[in-house]
Design a binder for these strands. Sequence first.
DNA 1: GTCTATAGTGCGATAGAC
DNA 2: GTCTATCGCACTATAGAC
Lengths: 229, 229
Amino acid sequence: MSFRDFTNQMVSMEEICRDLYRRHRKSIKIKKEEVVIKNLVTIFNATLELSNQKGFHAMSLRDLCRETELSMGALYSYFTSKEELVDIIQNQGRQVVMKVLLEQINRGSTPREKLHIAISTHLYLSEVMKQWFYFSFMETKNLSKDEQRKSIESELFTEKMFIDILEDGNRENCFEVQNSVLTGSLIKAMLQDWYLKRWKYSKRNITVDEYAEFIIRLIETFITPSSNK
Amino acid sequence: MSFRDFTNQMVSMEEICRDLYRRHRKSIKIKKEEVVIKNLVTIFNATLELSNQKGFHAMSLRDLCRETELSMGALYSYFTSKEELVDIIQNQGRQVVMKVLLEQINRGSTPREKLHIAISTHLYLSEVMKQWFYFSFMETKNLSKDEQRKSIESELFTEKMFIDILEDGNRENCFEVQNSVLTGSLIKAMLQDWYLKRWKYSKRNITVDEYAEFIIRLIETFITPSSNK
DNA sequence: GTCTATAGTGCGATAGAC
DNA sequence: GTCTATCGCACTATAGAC
């Protein structure tokens, strides 16, 4: 699947917010669904934008009022504290990422196919949700201890996904991976660079499909048994 | 050179601060060199520690007073504003990193040797100065536009160092690199992971020498001409 | 050279009007 | 459902005592 195909079937911010609202109906004061969705989308986008410019802590709620064109009082109808706002964004984003990743990987049948899909999908996700990925990485250390723990768990879970694919490949003799844990970590490190250094790749006009292909080629060269070369 | 050899010849925080003081004597009010060095070391270490826990912006000067056991007034004898403090740390760190990297690379004679040295030295530096590397990465976006520019330049400069080594290797036929820019970027991405995800590698008891060797092996597999295999 | 005290600003959060 | 007004607090920075 190319990036274009991926975006066409990817869920929109509206759908994500609608899902969020339906699961948290109790804690949001406003009752008209369409009003909630519209404002939630505005609030989340503005928060991601402002936080990625200056950091979540440095973003004041007055900044957020200006950007969303909502008043202080209106904002507080959608969350109960600034800290809850960051927690909601982190949790909802993680859930979407996990869901999409697992769905896509299950479409592959061989370890080689699964590896390609896992790498591409992770990159495509971080391209569609680039603001969220950057935000999630940069703000983790400012979360409560409990939310930090969830964030670390999620990092290790996606890494484990790669490690498992590599080890399956070893068992089926299509790969020859000597250190699957380190190899998995390095794959994640390279995927991460795509959203942490987005400015660099944009300036060089490197597309996400080119980047995906390149990483896949690098990793395949490393893990393909010499007899298959 | 192993990590142990590297640490033995690496400059200490005292020397770094002494150098800093001698170049900025005018803007620091205190006149007794030994007092200045001692307090600067304390202030920088405390700033790195606190910032890496909660972010520089979230670290209040009262936090810094507590940690350094200096008063507000005393702190302001060493810098003129909170922003200047972050700028000094960023600039001094960058200078040390550049100096050490260039010194070490010039010791290598072949591209292959230079590549090994560049990768190891970058990792060793980020191990000795792990707090600074993490700080530098996380706080760049909170700097003034001018300091941000310097930070980006420095990132691109070290990346260029890798790209140049790869292209030298191409010319001398010891490497066969098809996309030196992307390859250089990915090397940087993997080096970066060592200090951004330090907790992960510590927990797994992976040493910096093991990590260096692994990256070198991965990259060499990718860029060694097939006729040499 | 270091301290304490305080000025001045802007923050997160809420109550009550509309 | 949204707004304005306001409270109490924590912040950076400085002035002047020791």
